[in-house]
Amino acid sequence: MSTITATIPAADIERRSAVVAAVRDASAVAQRNLIAYRRVPQLLVFSTIQPVVFVLMFRYVFGGAISVPGFSYVDFLMPGIFIQTVVFGAMGTAVGLATDVKSGLLERFRALPMARSAVLAGRTLADLCRNVFVVLLMTAIGFAVGFRVHTGPLGLLGALLLLLLFGYTMSWVFALLGLAVGDPETAQAAAFPVVAPLVFASSAFVPVNTMPGWMQVFANHQPVSITTSAARALVLGGDTASLVLQSIGWCAGILLVFAPLAVWRYRRAV
């Protein structure tokens, strides 16, 4: 090895362990992303207005025409609205990351001595915080339009936690998409065809048995339906354990596939 012949400017870098650095860096990135929600309120407003419009539309316009056995439609509807909120919210992860690719910010991050996981962890964490806010808001709106929990507060809490887990899981799917397309408008356009069939060909808004047979096969087994049914069981009662386990299984499976893919894509994104 060559001799040290250079003098370098006073150094003031702290060496941190990998775990400490990963947590600190992810929280720095998450804070940065949350500032954007505060400073550009339309980001939050638009992701909130849409589900509110859906609540009002389905509750007062379509609701009368949709009959669900055993419950009032509003009780059936609200878990579906929650899942729509978190899944559509996950599209924000794609748009946010694509914006950072385009602006060159990710390039800067990749030349910094920060944890490689921090950009994705921070982004998805910030979007989880956003989802907490939006889901709580939607719960309040649900109560205002007549939604009632049949089980109890723990059931509601469990349902909300499960929905937030599912939203977090979907954030990783859309993280991969956002990094891959690298342009916010394209990300938005590319995410919608992924989201729409998952949310609408599901048990979120209408009972699956009203759909054609071939679609029922998909609609009964896809993760949005499973999670909606699990959340519904948690707030309305019924066979809970099996559905919740299936939903958590879906989340674990999706995370195991998409989180490594997203990290891989981040490492080679320019």
Partner: peptide, 30 residues
């Protein structure tokens, strides 16, 4: 190393001060 790439790679939603603090934290400054 420090890098200033071709695009002015700063976060448009943050203030100047917030941008520099963010980079400072990620650069592992105490």
């Amino acid at each position: 190393i420090g890098l200033a790439g071709q695009a002015a790679a700063v976060d448009a939603n943050l203030t100047g001060r917030e941008n520099l603090r963010l980079i400072g934290r990620l650069a592992q400054l105490p």
